[in-house]
């Protein structure tokens, strides 16, 4: 966390020279009533950003595993399913995918006779989860492939079926290779969640945009916005490092 203090100090120093025309600290000055109201307004998007990111990350972890398993099959057909999904999803930019999910998917549902509305919250989650799942799938695949073939053969010879051998033998060993990069993917999701602002989700970036429209102070407001994301990412990175230390100190499995 020490590293966070340096930029924050710089910010405060810049803010100190608030007499200058180009820097209007007052908009986000927590010591004044209006500044404090603005800061509260901006920070109140934090909950939505965290919720979207967390749910999307959990979904991505599940979808990623489901996509990764056929990629490890000896049957070429199954591997193809995995390749097509990963390459296709990975090639779609996030914003078009978001538009497709939010504006397009309800039409698809309606044409199938389903009435499933997609609100900005779930639209953003689905997009982030699916987009990220192509990457988590690759992380799983690499992690599982790093476990020697003899392990799954030994599991087979003691009668375990495919899912039992994944559950009790392969995944518990692969997890130490999988968790750290998965946690890094979480940072990616948090950053990409900013796109949810364009479909009207009231998260951090949307709040900032709205405040800029009324206050005409883009520099100050977006600077604060950047520091809000920085704070989130620093917290996650600290978590990742803690995780890596814990896995590293647990040396039982090679």
């Amino acid at each position: 966390m020490k590293r966070a203090f340096f930029p924050l100090t710089v910010l405060v120093l810049i803010a100190g020279c608030s007499s200058s025309q180009s820097w209007g600290w007052y908009v986000i000055d927590p010591t004044t009533e209006s500044g404090w109201t603005n800061v509260k307004f901006l920070v109140s998007g934090m909950g939505a950003t965290i919720q979207i990111s967390l749910i999307a990350a959990v979904l991505s972890i599940v979808i990623g595993l489901i996509v990764a398993l056929p990629g490890l099959s000896e049957k070429r057909g199954w591997r193809l399913v995995n390749r097509v999904y990963v390459e296709f999803i990975r090639s779609i930019p996030l914003l078009p995918m978001l538009f497709w999910v939010f504006y397009g998917m309800p039409i698809v549902f309606r044409s199938m006779g389903l009435n499933i509305p997609i609100d900005p919250f779930w639209g953003a989650i689905i997009t982030l989860a699916v987009s990220d799942s192509a990457f988590t799938a690759e992380i799983y695949r690499a992690g599982i492939q790093s476990i020697a073939r003899g392990q799954s053969e030994a599991a087979q010879t003691i009668g375990l079926n495919y899912f039992q051998s994944m559950r009790y033998v392969i995944l518990p060993q692969a997890i130490r290779r999988i968790l750290p990069p998965l946690a890094n993917q979480f940072i990616y999701i948090v950053k990409m969640s900013a796109f949810a602002s364009v479909i009207g989700m009231q998260e951090l970036t949307r709040r900032a945009n709205e405040l800029v429209v009324t206050e005409y102070r883009p520099l100050e407001i977006y600077t604060l916005l950047i520091f809000e994301y920085l704070l989130l990412v620093l917290i996650i990175s600290a978590g990742v490092r803690w995780l890596e230390r814990r896995m590293g100190s647990d040396e039982r499995g090679q």
Binding site: A148, G150, Q151, A154, A155, Q173, G253, Q254
Partner: peptide, 8 residues
């Protein structure tokens, strides 16, 4: 040959 015990 390589035992293939489960290390975890």
């Amino acid at each position: 040959q390589q035992f293939n015990l489960f290390p975890h």
